[in-house]
Computed example of a mutant assay.
Amino acid sequence: MADLVITPANVVAGTNAGTDSASAGEVIAAGDQIYLNSTTKKLMLADSNSATAEARKAIGTALNGGALNQPIKYQKSGDITPGAALTPGAAYYLSDAPGKICPAADVGAGEYVCLIGLAKSASVLTLDYQFPGVAN
């Protein structure tokens, strides 16, 4: 399998979405998984095998794209249409490709496990960020 192929224009928050916003610390696209850099207080792309511990813990899905210092609204909880085809009932995790989402089978050895959520249907993901701080 491979990372989800997300169409940024199709990323839509559900009616039960818990959201927040901050400035981008780098180029971010709608659908990217992000974390908040504790030093700069800016959003960056999360990455399951990053050398930086805080980058391994995604906190949300970007709902819009932006360049450095532009505002990014992101979803922390609730249902989201991620703009990708999902397998109903499947769990999805942070990928080792910065900002991306992958199925459980693609979380490789040595990568840190960060659950993004469970597929409610073929098009809706229920976000449930969980980061136990352990490598696969």
Rank of each mutant, 00 (worst) to 15 (best):
N69V: 03
G14Y: 05
D32V: 01
Y35N: 11
K120A: 15
T52E: 13
S38G: 12
A53L: 13
S121H: 09
S21Q: 15
A84H: 02
A29W: 05
A109K: 09
G110Y: 07
A85R: 07
A122E: 05
S77N: 14
V113T: 14
G65V: 02
K41D: 01
A90V: 09
G117R: 09
I101Q: 07
Q75P: 12
V27F: 07
A29G: 10
V107G: 03
V12I: 14
I28K: 06
L63E: 05
A58D: 04
Q75I: 15
A29M: 08
Y35E: 06
R56V: 12
S21K: 14
N64T: 07
G99Y: 03
E26Q: 12
T61A: 09
Y93C: 02
K76C: 10
Q75Y: 04
G31I: 02
A109L: 11
V27S: 09
Y93V: 00
A67L: 10
I116N: 01
G110M: 08
I59C: 09
G31K: 07
G60L: 04
V12H: 07
G78Q: 08
A24M: 05
Q70N: 14
A84K: 00
A84F: 06
N37S: 10
I59M: 15
A46E: 01
G18Y: 06
M44P: 00
M44K: 15
T19P: 00
Y112P: 02
S95M: 06
T19V: 15
N69H: 07
L68I: 13
G66Y: 05
